[in-house]
C-alpha cells in the first residue's frame, strides 16, 4: 500500500537548520554553475577574460559548471520536497522551472556550439546576451517566489 507523502515527516521540515543549510548549498552551487557559465558569456560578449577565447574558457570551466548544476538541482529538489504542492501550484515557480529548462538546453546546445566553433561576432554576442538573460531570470524568479511567504 502506498502511503500518501506527509511533508511533516520530511527532515527538511523537522530538522531546524536543514532547510537553511540547503538554501546555502543552493546559493553556493549556483555561484559555481552560473558563475562559470557567465565567464564564457563575457568572453562571447567580447568583454574577454585574459584574452582567452570562449572555447578555452568553456573547456576550462565545463566540469565545474556540471558539478555546480548537479549540486544546485539536488539542493533545489530537497527544498522543493519541503512543500511540493506550494511549489507545484505557484505560477512564479513554474515560470522559473521553464526558464531553467530552457537555460540548460540552450547552454548545452546553441551556447556550447557557438562557444566552441567561433561564430560571427554578432551571433557570439547574441548567444552571450541570451545566456545571461536566461540565467538571470532563473535567479530572479527564484527569489521572487521565495520572497512571497505562503503566497505564489
Amino acid at each position: 500500500m502506498i502511503q500518501p507523502y506527509d511533508v511533516s515527516t520530511n527532515p527538511m521540515n523537522t530538522v531546524e537548520w536543514l532547510f537553511a543549510a540547503m538554501e546555502c548549498v543552493h546559493i553556493g552551487s549556483f555561484a559555481l554553475s552560473i558563475g562559470t557559465i557567465t565567464m564564457v558569456d563575457m568572453s562571447l560578449l567580447g568583454a574577454g577574460i585574459g584574452g582567452r577565447s570562449p572555447a578555452q574558457i568553456l573547456r576550462a570551466t565545463e566540469s565545474w559548471t556540471m558539478v555546480g548544476l548537479i549540486t544546485v538541482i539536488t539542493a533545489g529538489l530537497a527544498i522543493f520536497s519541503s512543500d511540493p504542492l506550494r511549489y507545484y501550484y505557484s505560477p512564479t515557480f513554474r515560470f522559473k522551472i521553464w526558464v531553467l529548462l530552457a537555460a540548460i538546453v540552450f547552454n548545452y546546445t546553441f551556447h556550447r556550439r557557438v562557444s566552441l566553433s567561433g561564430s560571427s561576432p554578432f551571433i557570439a554576442k547574441a548567444t552571450g546576451a541570451i545566456s545571461v538573460i536566461l540565467w538571470g531570470t532563473v535567479v530572479f524568479s527564484g527569489l521572487f517566489f521565495a520572497f512571497n511567504p505562503g503566497g505564489y
Binding site: I27, A31, I34, G35, T38, M39, F140, L143
Partner: peptide
C-alpha cells in the same frame, strides 16, 4: 525584492568569479 534578487544575482556572477579565482 528586486534589490534582493540583484544581490543574489551578483553572488551568481561575481561570487562565481571569486570561487574560480580561489580554486
Amino acid at each position: 525584492p528586486t534589490v534582493m534578487a540583484t544581490h543574489l544575482s551578483c553572488i551568481a556572477v561575481f561570487g562565481g568569479m571569486i570561487l574560480m579565482t580561489n580554486l
